[in-house]
């Protein structure tokens, strides 16, 4: 992976991948997975998030939950950059299968401290084959 150097994680840091495969609201897994990511950010590991299958729905635009009585937690994904969680991998095939494109996703960015705080996209659209490769490079995979 090209972006490994960016995080400034110490040598002993493990590569953690959070695998998100479920849509939000129907079950609590997406929300509670995000809670782990936020807490985990304090541990200075090399953190990556994968969105595949229905998990891509976690980061689509225009989520509005007022009428179902649940809290809309999608804005939290936009704050991930503040937690130095900057590598979000979204599977292209998962989007396509669901009739979605990259334009349907929220804009999620981070400020790159190694590049004069330039604002950069956190979302990387990757092929299914690349997603498999990303999984094969992890130390720890957390799946919810």
């Amino acid at each position: 992976m090209a972006m490994d150097e960016a995080g400034g994680a110490p040598g002993a840091a493990k590569k953690f991948l959070y695998v998100n495969r479920k849509a939000p609201y129907g079950t609590i897994y997406a929300l509670e997975s995000l809670e782990v990511v936020l807490i985990g950010a304090a541990f200075e590991q090399d953190v990556q998030l994968a969105f595949l299958d229905d998990g891509v729905y976690q980061i689509v635009k225009n989520q509005s939950t007022d009428a179902i009585g649940a809290k809309n937690f999608s804005p939290t994904y936009k704050a991930l950059g503040d937690y130095e969680v900057t590598k979000l991998y979204v599977e292209a095939e998962a989007l396509e299968e669901r009739g979605l494109t990259a334009d349907d996703l929220m804009e999620i960015t981070f400020e790159d401290e190694d590049d004069d705080w330039a604002e950069k996209p956190s979302i990387n659209i990757v092929s299914r084959a690349d997603m498999a490769k990303i999984m094969s490079e992890q130390d720890v995979i957390l799946s919810f």
């Binding site: 953690f16 782990v36 985990g40 590991q45 130390d139 720890v140 995979i141 957390l142």
Partner: peptide
């Protein structure tokens, strides 16, 4: 806390 889960990931050889 949830930190115990992250710590398990860090400390354990396999999760």
């Amino acid at each position: 806390g949830l930190g115990q889960l992250i710590e398990a990931g860090i400390e354990a050889d396999r999760l």
